[in-house]
């Protein structure tokens, strides 16, 4: 798009040999990406649809019993779907505000030297493999939670969500920080010149201008939470029931796939059901994506009204 809009208005070398190589490279790389995505989707749909021969769609989506190894298998995924949604929501509620606060701090408030210290540390946190978080949840957080609140088990939704929230912070925090830093200095200066305080400037000028960047950063974090498997497998407890309290063990779609795919006979109903679980996950992330696109569009309108 950028390419066609600017044609003719740039240097006479535009569209020359170098440009063509770059354009073709970009085109082929993105084509490959789209093709791969298409294949994944095709494969997922192809492998998941046969499950509908064994059970109905409403039984799959709203059934309460997940006993896939029985004959005939009980393939109700409602508790699993609810677990996935609940964990995603809770971990976002924990992780996103913290990330945003850290981003505002590093981008707007912290002095340069402190920022240079905090930012790399934050990014370092992002390198910790998820299995380490899972292990932490299992041997440190779980016993502490259980003793502190005298629970049935420390491996539960709160535990897994807190860990996921922590895992979100490095990604979302550092991307949001970059979004905030990208806001032109002139905007801040203009705001200060009009007599706005620092807080007013952050809230009314910088945050709205950086909103699209912050939103896509948050989106990445939320998707990570939805798709995270290892932490769920290790720290979420794995009971296939709809969580009724923060401290109930849960069993999201991801850990179900991970735990059961290894020993499922290829082509069995259980096998196809697990692919269907993958398809549901994909649809959930797609829905989150669309939702955020909508919010973003609304945000632009709002910003247009304000500025």
């Amino acid at each position: 798009m950028l390419h066609t809009r600017k044609r003719g208005t740039t240097s006479p070398h535009f569209g020359g040999w170098g440009d063509r190589v770059a354009a073709r490279t970009a085109l082929s790389v993105s084509t490959v990406c789209i093709l791969i995505m298409g294949f994944i989707l095709y494969f997922l749909v192809k492998e998941s649809l046969p499950v509908l021969k064994a059970t109905t769609l409403s039984e799959l989506l709203f059934g309460m019993d997940w006993y896939p190894q029985e004959t005939p298998p009980a393939l109700g995924m409602f508790p699993l779907i609810m677990s996935s949604l609940a964990v995603t929501f809770l971990s976002s509620a924990i992780g996103l505000p913290v990330s945003l606060a850290i981003a505002v701090f590093t981008a707007e408030i912290a002095p340069r030297r402190l920022r240079n210290l905090v930012k790399p540390l934050l990014e370092l946190l992002g390198f910790i493999p998820s299995i380490v978080f899972g292990f932490l949840g299992m041997v440190v957080v779980a016993p502490w939670l259980q003793d502190r609140f005298s629970l049935l088990t420390g491996l539960n939704m709160a535990n897994a969500s807190a860990l996921l929230g922590m895992m979100m912070v490095p990604i979302v925090g550092s991307l949001a920080d970059e979004a905030l830093c990208a806001v032109p200095r002139e905007l801040r200066d203009a705001s200060y010149a009009l007599g706005a305080t620092r807080w007013e400037t952050i809230r009314r000028v910088v945050l709205p201008s950086a909103l699209p960047g912050i939103l896509s950063a948050s989106l990445l974090g939320v998707m990570r939470a939805t798709g995270e498997t290892m932490v769920m497998l290790m720290a979420a407890g794995g009971a296939a029931v709809i969580p009724r309290s923060l401290f109930d063990p849960v069993r999201p779609l991801t850990s179900t796939i991970a735990a059961e795919m290894g020993e499922t006979p290829v082509g069995s109903e259980h096998y196809h059901a697990l692919f269907f679980a993958g398809l549901i996950l994909l649809l959930i992330t797609l829905a989150i994506n669309l939702l955020s696109a909508k919010i973003e569009a609304k945000g632009f309108k709002l910003k247009g009204g304000n500025l």
Binding site: M138, P143, G154, L155, L233, M234, G237, G238, A239, A259
Partner: peptide
């Protein structure tokens, strides 16, 4: 019932609860 994905995870879970 909670579900553990390996013998080791089972052991840790019971030992910690």
């Amino acid at each position: 019932a909670q579900v553990t994905a390996s013998s080791g995870a089972m052991l840790t879970t019971v030992a910690k609860n």
